Amino acid sequence: MLQLLNNIKQTEVEFDRIRIWDFYLTFPNEARRIKFPIDLLELKKVFKDKANNPYEDLIDPQRIIQRMKPYQSSALKYLSAYGLIDSGLFLKNIIKRTDKELPKELELKLVEISIEKSNVIKLITGFSDLSLWGIKERTGLIEYKYDRK
């Protein structure tokens, strides 16, 4: 979660948006199933090239992201308790990184990032201009039909 928060343009992010991003950081192979906008088609090629292993395919990504929700929520509650994200906004399902500095050891771990995760973060920052509804619609991971556009 901290890796995501440290690499995005926005200062505030919706809870469902960061859940979706965390899903793709956990399962980067699933990014090839996203409906990419035209300006990110080059990045889609990177994910399609990695799609050779059928054992990495998830059978039901929607169920997996729902099962991840309690863990994602707990991780964010932990960050809130340590003052790393704004606890008042967190209660409103908005995630905002505070100015509190990370311990040096943790900061070093966040810098270590694989090429695959780096590509996912590029993808995430490319999708940052889309509305939450748009991200839900393009990924198909979370129900969006009754959300406001």
Rank of each mutant, 00 (worst) to 15 (best):
S80C: 04
R33F: 12
L43W: 02
K35W: 02
I135S: 00
Q10W: 01
A31G: 04
M68G: 01
L130W: 06
P103C: 02
Y24H: 09
E112W: 05
Y55I: 09
R67E: 15
V120I: 15
G134D: 13
E42I: 09
N93Q: 14
T139N: 07
I18P: 00
K104V: 07
R32P: 01
R67L: 15
L40P: 07
I34W: 01
E14P: 01
I121G: 02
K96C: 02
I94H: 01
K100W: 00
L5R: 10
T26R: 11
L43C: 10
L84S: 02
L89T: 02
L41I: 14
D49Q: 13
D49H: 11
G88M: 07
D49N: 12
V120K: 05
S128K: 03
L123Y: 03
G88Y: 02
S114D: 04
K35A: 12
R67Q: 15
P103H: 08
L5V: 09
Q62P: 07
K145A: 12
Q72I: 15
P54T: 04
T139I: 10
F36D: 06
I94K: 13
N52L: 13
S74F: 10
I121L: 15
K48S: 09
K69Y: 13
P54A: 07
L4V: 09
T11W: 04
K117Y: 00
G88K: 07
S80P: 06
D49R: 14
I65M: 06
K45F: 00
G140S: 08
P103L: 05
Y24E: 03
P103G: 01
R19N: 09
I18W: 00
V46K: 12
L141Q: 03
D147S: 12
V120R: 03
E12A: 14
L108W: 07
R97K: 15
I124E: 04
I34Q: 03
K122E: 09
I34T: 05
T98G: 02
S131Y: 06
R33I: 06
I113L: 14
K45P: 00
T139C: 08
F27Y: 15
E30G: 05
F127Y: 08
P54C: 06
E107V: 00
R148H: 12
R17W: 05
V13N: 02
T98M: 01
L79I: 01
N52V: 12
D57T: 05
P28R: 08
D60Y: 12
N119G: 00
N53K: 10
N7P: 03
N29M: 10
K122Q: 10
R138V: 13
P54G: 04
P61E: 06
K69E: 15
E56L: 15
L2G: 07
R32I: 12
V111A: 11
K92C: 09
F36P: 08
E143I: 06
I64W: 06
L108F: 10
L25H: 02
P61S: 07
M1I: 15
N53S: 10
I142W: 07
F127H: 03
K100E: 05
T26Q: 11
S128V: 10
K109N: 13
G88I: 04
K35M: 08
L25A: 09
I135W: 00
A81P: 00
R138T: 12
D57F: 11
L4P: 01
D86A: 05
S73K: 13
P103V: 05
R67V: 08
N119H: 13
K109L: 15
D99H: 14
L108T: 12
G83A: 04
D86R: 04
A75T: 14
